[in-house]
Design a protein around this nucleic acid. Structure first.
Lengths: 204, 204
DNA sequence: CTTTTTACTGAACACTGTTTATTTTTGCAG
DNA sequence: CTGCAAAAATAAACAGTGTTCAGTAAAAAG
């Protein structure tokens, strides 16, 4: 039975190799500009082989999205040490901005890219996105429960924060912020994060 | 000299025809999925002809963006009749949401699509985007001047509002809002608009 | 050593944006 | 009306895309 195991391990290794190289290429060149042939050339296999491990390019994207979400979740981990929910919320915003501006391509893969999403309902990377949102929602829930805000609608409050963050990041990354003719774009984003927290939450 | 004029008019007519059909196709099928050959087939000319009127596909996108911005600006026109800046701001948010959710493809063309933007610095559609942002900024400026808010940073406040709106719209349109498992997604967006205005502005 | 199973290949298909040599159409002078 | 130059439109070509599938090579089993 050892042979079968080895074979299985080898298959898994190739699967991982494809994922690793595809991830790197998606991040470096973007999803659209990374062709299956280029990936194949990089891993030194023929195009067809990739299709033995991933149904199509979308399937490969899902896998890469999983990697991206894991990466993001790791950034968020230190947050759990912060006791005060308002403080945690503020730090969460800072991390969100930091990660998104440092890794605009990861961000794109997770939150902007269109292609699949619509079609598929159930997918692993999808659950990871939910997991990420729950980190926010839980913290907001604590803020509400502990009366650090006048607001009561946890969904609305959570989504507002997420939207503002997501909006800032995408307008920045897609260069639409340029219409504002600012000198320090990233500085403004951080300022707004603080501004929002202080307006909606009272940390006493 | 009449002949030259007619020729020029005919050229302009074809230019407009290409723009019109391209706009329709971009909106219906999306930018990526609309090929130059398909546009050519639709207007019953060969592919090459399009390149005599628009340098390339990006150039065509710019033109369509112009159409989209005009469309959006038209939606915003009725706003100017609202005297009270806070009321105007709130209505602006409602219109923004309404337009963006009704015309997700126009929205994509204006605010999400990547391709050109980065390369070109000066472009007509760009100015129209600026014009649109100034409608918001002017209103926020009035709110600040007339002391309807404690905030003083007009840029920050304006951009925060825009970001929140843009974030909500894109998360909705790209289906990322689904992780929230809501029943009435659009209702929540409108609720948040009101929530933001009432938290940052005091209309007395 | 043969058979069967598994893994892999590369050519083919129907597309894409863009360029260019060629052909067609047009306007005008003789 | 004819000849000709200029303008406009075309078809073919180039290099690329995602995806499929008949065929081949390698490995495992008998």
């Amino acid at each position: 039975m050892s042979v079968k195991q080895r074979r299985e391990r080898e298959k898994e290794e190739l699967r991982q190799l494809i994922l690793k190289e595809a991830t790197q290429m998606f991040l470096k060149e973007g999803y659209e500009k990374t062709s299956m042939r280029k990936i194949a050339k990089r891993i030194e296999y023929s195009v067809g082989t990739i299709y033995l491990y991933y149904k199509n390019k979308d399937e490969l994207l899902y896998a890469v999205q999983g990697v991206a979400f894991d990466h993001f979740l790791n950034y968020m981990k230190p947050l759990m040490d912060i006791e005060h929910p308002v403080e945690r919320l503020k730090k969460m915003g800072e991390i969100y901005l930091f990660f998104s501006l440092q890794n605009p391509d990861y961000y794109d893969l997770m939150f902007v890219i269109e292609s699949p999403m619509n079609a598929v309902e159930e997918h692993e990377s999808w659950n990871k996105g939910e997991q990420l949102f729950n980190v926010l929602k839980t913290t907001v829930q604590e803020c509400v429960t502990q009366k650090y805000t006048k607001q009561t609608n946890v969904d609305a409050l959570s989504f507002m924060i997420w939207s503002a963050m997501h909006g800032m990041v995408t307008l920045k990354n897609k260069c639409r912020i340029r219409v504002m003719n600012l000198e320090n774009e990233e500085g403004l984003l951080r300022e707004i994060n603080g501004m929002m927290i202080h307006n909606f939450f009272d940390s006493n």
